[in-house]
Design a protein around this nucleic acid. Sequence first.
RNA 1: GGAGCCGUAGUUAAGACGGUUAUAACGCCGGCCUGUCACGCCGGAGGCCGAGGGUUCGAGUCCCUUCGGCUCCGCCA
Length: 620
Amino acid sequence: MSDQKLDVQQEHQQYIEPLGDWARSHDCCTLTAADTGAEVCLMGWVQYRRDHGGLIFVDLRDRQGLTQIVFSPDVNPAAHERAHVIRSEYVLAIRGTVRPRPEGMTNPGMKTGEIEVYVSEWKLLNTSKTPAFVIEDRTEASENLRLQYRYLDLRRPRMANNFIVRHKAAQATRRYLDELGFLEIETPYLTKSTPEGARDFLVPSRLNQGQFYALPQSPQLFKQLLMMSGMERYYQIVRCFRDEDMRADRQLEFTQIDIEMSFVDEEQVMAMAEGLMARVFRDALDREIATPFPRMSYDDAMARYGVDKPDTRFGLELQDVTHIVRGSNFKLFATAELVKAMRVPGGETMTRKEIDEFTEFVKIYGAQGLAWIKIRPDEWQSPIAKFLSDAERAGLKEALGLETGDIVFFQAGAPGMVNAALGNLRVRLGEHLGLIDENAFNFLWVTDFPLFEYDEEEKRYVACHHPFTSPKDGHMDVMVENPAAARARAYDMVLNGYELGGGSIRNHTAEKQRRMFAALGFSPEEAEAQFGFLTQALEMGAPPHGGIAFGMDRLAMLLTGSSSIRDVIAFPKTQKATCLLTQAPDNVSARQLRDLGLRLRETGKEAAPKAPASTDTPQG
RNA sequence: GGAGCCGUAGUUAAGACGGUUAUAACGCCGGCCUGUCACGCCGGAGGCCGAGGGUUCGAGUCCCUUCGGCUCCGCCA
């Protein structure tokens, strides 16, 4: 019964002792045979207890690792006797002697496996209820439980290591940028809501009732203002906030390495960024990264990979075959705006079931279906083979370099859908077929981004990067005549298919910036009201400047091989934007609302305080 | 706003064809054990089958609703 368990743990509380003047001499991962004979003091948590009645072995865990400690009646009978109460996750302080393990008793699987510490005296610093799940890497508790008992989850070595690596990456960043003369400067969290971009988090103002601050989506405007302030080189490892739906690699609040430089062009920013990555990978993972990184234009990326953040760890490139099938008897191909193909070498052995799965997969992106051709020695096996003329077959074979044993997938329709469907199918196939080297870090710059993209909802062009990005030389005029063709002085750093960072050279004259606002459909009055402080600053000696920002969480995720940024954020939120540990967000008192001049709209469901998830849920 | 997967002892899962008392492993509790290391052996406790409603003589199982976790589309300058 759970009552029994509770009783045991409660009964053991009488043995808890204060720390007194004890101090740790080592952590639980450093002792070796070279320390034989040393008197040491260790403190940590009980990972495993192996009570033999006579001898008691305990694996003591701290942030760094494990050390086996031994309670023996031969060393201190009283200390040994007391040790029978020890349970999982109890917190111990021990003093003892380092001894080499007896012949044949070493544990090569353990960093400290050649030694053990014989306990001469020990203190129980705290007891522990039986944890909701065992603290170890190999048993995965559900994410639900892990988030509810996050402090237990973070004790797992894998998680602890994630934060060690993340810390090293952050420290490497600070060292590198400091050496290059960057100043770490803080910017406001309570700031002004601006149009464009993500949904803002708003904070009501008590002293200015009816008005709101916005939490920054990024410190973009402030870092540019710091350039206008003559700071020349700025950086900040800074929290950003965007009230949008979450994904495995997106949280409401996330951390950017935010950087801005004066008197530079793209080349200097990119070289600085490559050096930063090289330093981070060296200091955090002891890995050397080759620089400079390869580059690819946005148009090339979309043409060859269907996405603007290609994973270049494997092939399976896309090809435009529209011109080959233009006159086809297959009506869909003949009339589609874009027809693209992806050749999968050796894919002829795919089963109908697999193909059906991929067909379902591309429907997510709006595809109606998925055409395919298996290249067999004797024939082309395909639902669409009968529509293809000899000339079309020859054209496809030549263009795609088809060989016996291949399968080719086709997607036809609107370019956005075709690229999304095939581009994402490509990644899925890369995983499915095991084409991805999990050990590789493939960096890539994507350049020459469009300045604008058309927003179907708003029926107007919006900035692809952000409204402060400078058009490429000569594109100021293109911008007006043909907005879709204008290109920006923007660049994204891509790593293994993730957008790791992005930046641009900014407009540094007020005139250019005003033309940009006009192109985005702002009236001069609107531009003045929203961004007047910026254009005014640009009129007072703004230097040429540009910068970049990296997703710190994504960087840490990739450095640690994690599959979600939640594994590198200490206290993340769920997909429904709640914190299972603290139960945030929660209702507030009528008094708090009154102070802010706010009244809640009637919603039908009464705002009652949330019940705790269970009696075990920590409160206060 | 939408699609998919998942909720069963503390945990991870099995049970799905509607039919005795809902299984297993690990964990937990008690006992034995001086060389274990995910110790071993013996014994034991532990369940609102996420919640609510319905169909039925009978629901973990079928139907409806709802809550929660995850993945994805839309969204994310």
